Amino acid sequence: MTRHHKQERHQALIEEIEKNPFSTDEELAQRFNVSVSTIRLDRSNLGIPELRERTRAVAHEAYDTLKSLEEQEVIGLLTELKVGQMGRSAMLIEENMVLDKARVARGHHLFAQANSLAIALVDAEAAVTGSVDLKFLRPVHLGETVIAYGKVIKRKGNKYWVDIKAQVNQEDVLIGHWILFGFKAEINL
């Protein structure tokens, strides 16, 4: 490969990782039609950390802004959060999350990721889900990473309307509309 192509690939790699910091080396290799070792060498030359480090850096900022949940209550990894506006989380589907026979994610795991993201968007000390209109669009398989996007559509007093969309490789797998209620937390010791 000529130097010119390498420079173009480097620029495209930087842009792709900025757009989706959770891309694995394998996904990037497939996207750029090169070997995984080439992607790793490119990342190293460009000073781009491996997936685990990129994920940690992105998540650290998001968790600092959490209001309505504790960090351990978030299902998946919170990667972006602007309370009262929008957020994003990622969840890798692991062995303990799938149905034994079908090898697809159990629906309650996908719902839990989306629901905790919706609650995290509420600008209050605590929040509860009032109602949800939810559609599962396709099964999610073992090893796939689900990226959930949430956006506050409307707020009236302590009532929030939130839309959540979950995707795998930019394909919708779940969409839902939440109504949530924010309130002041009571501490009973």
Rank of each mutant, 00 (worst) to 15 (best):
L110V: 10
A90R: 14
L121Y: 01
L117Y: 05
G84P: 07
R31Q: 15
A114T: 13
L110N: 07
I48M: 02
E73G: 08
A114L: 04
T79G: 10
A120D: 03
L51M: 11
S116K: 00
K82T: 14
G84F: 04
L77C: 13
I48V: 08
R52Y: 01
S23H: 11
K67R: 15
V74I: 09
R52G: 00
L99E: 09
A62S: 12
K67E: 03
N20A: 06
F111C: 05
F22T: 12
A29T: 09
K101A: 15
K19A: 12
A59V: 11
G107H: 11
R106E: 14
P49K: 06
I48Q: 06
E94I: 08
A112P: 05
I48A: 02
V36S: 07
G76P: 02
V74W: 07
N33F: 03
L28V: 08
F32Q: 01
R54A: 03
E53I: 02
D42N: 02
S37L: 00
Y63P: 04
S89R: 01
E95N: 14
G47Q: 08
V83H: 02
V36Y: 08
G76I: 03
H108S: 15
Q72P: 08
G47P: 05
E50W: 06
I119W: 03
Y63N: 05
L78D: 03
G76N: 14
I48F: 00
D42I: 02
N33R: 14
N96A: 09
N45E: 14
L92Y: 11
F32R: 13
M86C: 09
G107E: 00
S116N: 00
A90Q: 08
R56M: 08
T24M: 07
E71V: 12
S23G: 05
E95C: 06
N20K: 10
Q85A: 05
R52V: 12
N33Y: 05
H60T: 13
A90E: 11
A102H: 13
E27S: 12
T55A: 02
P21L: 13
I48C: 05
E70Q: 15
E61W: 04
L78M: 12
E95W: 03
A105E: 03
E61M: 08
L81V: 05
K19G: 12
P21D: 07
I119P: 07
S116Q: 09
D42Q: 12
I93R: 06
L28I: 06
S116I: 00
T79N: 03
A112D: 11
S116A: 00
E73H: 11
M91F: 11
R56N: 12
Y63Q: 07
L41E: 06
G107K: 06
D64L: 09
S116F: 04
A118Q: 05
A62H: 02
